[in-house]
Design a protein around this nucleic acid. Sequence first.
RNA 1: GCCGGGGUGGGGUAGUGGUAUCCUAUGGGACUGUGGAUCCCUCGAGCCGGGUUCGAUUCCCGGUCCCGGCCCCA
Length: 419
Amino acid sequence: MTFKRPRGTRDMTPGLMLRMRYVTDILRDTAEIAGFLEVGTPTFEHSELFIERSGEEVVDQMYVFDDKGGRSLALRPEITASVMRLYSSELRSEPKPIKVFYIGNCFRYERPQKGRYREFWQFGTEIIGNDSPFANAELMTLAADGIDSIGVEDCLMRVGHVGVLRTLVNCLGLDEKADLMALIDKGAFDEIRALDKGDALVYLLEVEDVEEARELFDSTEFAQALPEEFMDRFEDLATTLALLEAAGVEHRMDLGIARGLDYYTGIVFEIDVPSLGAEKQVCGGGSYDLGDIFGVPGTKATGFAMGVDRLMLSVGDLDDASLKGSEVHVVPLLDEASGVALNVAGTLRDEGLRTVLNLSCPKPGKAIKQALNAGALGIVFIGEDELADSTYTVKDLDKQTQATVPGEKLIDTVQALYE
RNA sequence: GCCGGGGUGGGGUAGUGGUAUCCUAUGGGACUGUGGAUCCCUCGAGCCGGGUUCGAUUCCCGGUCCCGGCCCCA
């Protein structure tokens, strides 16, 4: 009987796991050094949590099930909803803003393809209690830093504002319909032009320069048609872009970012890695207000989520040996040396040295091949002679030298391999 | 959900209507307690189900999974 993985899931081989750790360790470090604190939430929640946040239609793409008590539960399709729940129940009296991050697996029932799995991993951050341009700019800086530190070469950050977009759509007399927003998000300009006043909308969407946009909106033609709060929103966007400029974060203004579901309220941004193909978005986020849903009205927040699996695909070749770190091998050459070998391995491990114990009591030549293939720095041999004299033979695989030393010199000799 | 391409040892492959090639990796051995070499041995395969056929890994149908794209993407 053989078993296969469920569709859309992945086995993490040691090599893949090293890459995953490489990505998540960097993201975690980036967030922690910026003062964000890690949180964790359940892998499954009441299904209503996600439905409340994202709408009934998400049920189609969720793993929903009843537990033995008849509760409707769902494997989490995202983590922001859980963090907001956590905030509203555990953290609401903490000083604002609250800056947290998470790393976790999520589940969506979708057609798997490159960069899209039914179980996938997200890294994300939330700033709760402040969705100012300053807060958004910090978040985007953090996102850009993380992706840059991972070593992703070719990526593009686009920044927009759904409030600005929706107002423009309304002022042009176009319906803010879901399918129109979908067309905008997709960048299907030809199809939009086919609509009444679609030309004008496309013209606005294609503006990439802040000053150009500002002059346009300040012009009498527009100023009369646009509601008062419009320019405030637009200035929020302009301020955010200026802050990104100051931070040295590469970006582009893009008023056409519509971001799927409609709880986003203000600044939104996405980061694409074009080389990934169809599923090229590695990061998405923006300002939202879910306070009403979670019983804390008026709670402004902003956050982003990154696709860890896609980031793993975006990194070039990584060297396994350097990912896992240096190691030394301890090799007993005969069964009687096993006890000493265990003891020596323990001593070296206490020093924080990655120590691999060879369990097969091989001949020296074979042990050397195994150690070389594993990329080890050196070998501690324990054979007949060493047992008799209470010594150890330490071989340096790089320099191709070796020395037989007494026990009290073992640690120093092995540590010298690392230099 | 839709369109297209695929599925042969652990990984990579060749060929074929008469059960399968080679490479590599794994395990063991030779080279006498010392360098990735070389050599020998071992292990191990046609996604699943049905059909056609004396016989199917090969041809046909269905399913499944993988890959690319569409839809969607919180």
